[in-house]
């Protein structure tokens, strides 16, 4: 041919380069975790050692006992779990009905109401937490489970409607049309035909609800006061502000409460991503 070109060892080199970059990124991701994990396994003296070690000299699970599994912390996690369950019931029920209404039904003022609904996505959480706090005090629901569940549900509902509506829109129209021809009433249609088909959508929505509440700090902080009502992230935060920082137990609590979520994510990736890309709109 025209030019005599040498063969390509550089192809092999680029491949190695790719893997190196990816490994570097993985390292970047893991470094904070690894350091926290390593701390959580150290004895209090070792934590305070002047020369830090990545690998603990003696593995001490005591921090987990004191930090993660302490009665106080378990209570925090339990509260979060209860909030998740409560919010799942309330928000999913409200959202799936509303999503169906948006996708398939007509009602007066639909366009305006939908516009208002979507506009809430532009409201940053931090902007409303102070008046929300005042409102809850005025209504005498401050520091109650009810307020927490109601607030989370309200915050999640617009995003859930958006997410579920997407799933409803992707259902083949022929199913509902043939049901209509068979004389099925619209109400029945929703419960018997559409809802069962929304299982994947509801699964993604549930993941979003769980993750949002488990990870939320601002809303929980504004609405709870006493330790027995506190949610997870607020509880973690209180560890820091209350008694100087005991890094060992704190890291144990931190890692211990995050790890299950990360592992669940590893196994349910698609669901998480579906839910989160839907929820990313709110941020």
């Amino acid at each position: 041919m025209r030019n005599t070109r040498r063969p390509h060892p550089s192809a092999w080199l680029t491949l190695v380069g790719f893997y190196l970059v990816l490994l570097a990124a993985v390292l970047f991701v893991l470094v904070p975790f690894l350091w926290g994990l390593s701390t959580s396994l150290k004895s209090p003296q070792e934590v305070l050692a002047t020369t830090p070690h990545w690998i603990p000299e003696h593995i001490d699970f005591g921090n987990y006992g004191r930090g993660l599994l302490s009665e106080k912390f378990l209570r925090f996690m339990g509260n979060s779990l209860l909030a998740v369950i409560g919010a799942l019931i309330v928000s999913l029920t409200l959202a799936v009905h509303a999503a169906y209404a948006c996708a398939r039904l007509r009602f007066r003022g639909k366009d305006l109401l939908l516009f208002l609904l979507w506009s809430t996505i532009m409201i940053p959480t931090v902007a409303i937490i102070v008046p929300l706090y005042l409102l809850s005090v005025n209504l005498q629901v401050y520091d109650t489970r009810f307020a927490v569940i109601a607030a989370y549900s309200a915050m999640l509902v617009p995003t859930l409607i958006w997410l579920l509506r997407g799933f409803i829109d992707s259902l083949p129209g022929e199913l509902e049309e043939s049901a209509l021809v068979d004389g099925c009433s619209p109400v029945k249609m929703f419960y018997v035909i559409v809802l069962p088909l929304l299982r994947p959508g509801l699964a993604a929505a549930s993941v979003l609800v769980f993750l949002t509440i488990w990870n939320d700090f601002l809303l929980a902080f504004s609405l709870t006061l006493r330790d027995e009502n506190r949610l997870l992230q607020v509880g973690l935060h209180s560890y820091v502000t209350e008694a100087g920082i005991e890094w060992g137990p704190l890291m144990a609590a931190t890692i211990g409460s995050t790890l299950p979520v990360v592992i669940a994510f590893a196994f349910l990736q698609r669901l998480f991503i579906q839910g989160l890309t839907g929820g990313a709109v709110k941020g």
């Binding site: 209404a101 007509r106 008046p131 005042l134 109601a150 915050m155």
Partner: peptide, 28 residues
């Protein structure tokens, strides 16, 4: 009936959102 269904399905969600998000917003 369909219209009623539309209202019934949509409003509860909307009212909750209005109470928890709009009211504090206006307050602010």
């Amino acid at each position: 009936l369909r219209l009623l269904q539309g209202y019934a399905f949509f409003y509860p969600a909307f009212l909750l959102v209005a109470a928890v998000l709009f009211v504090p917003l206006f307050h602010a």
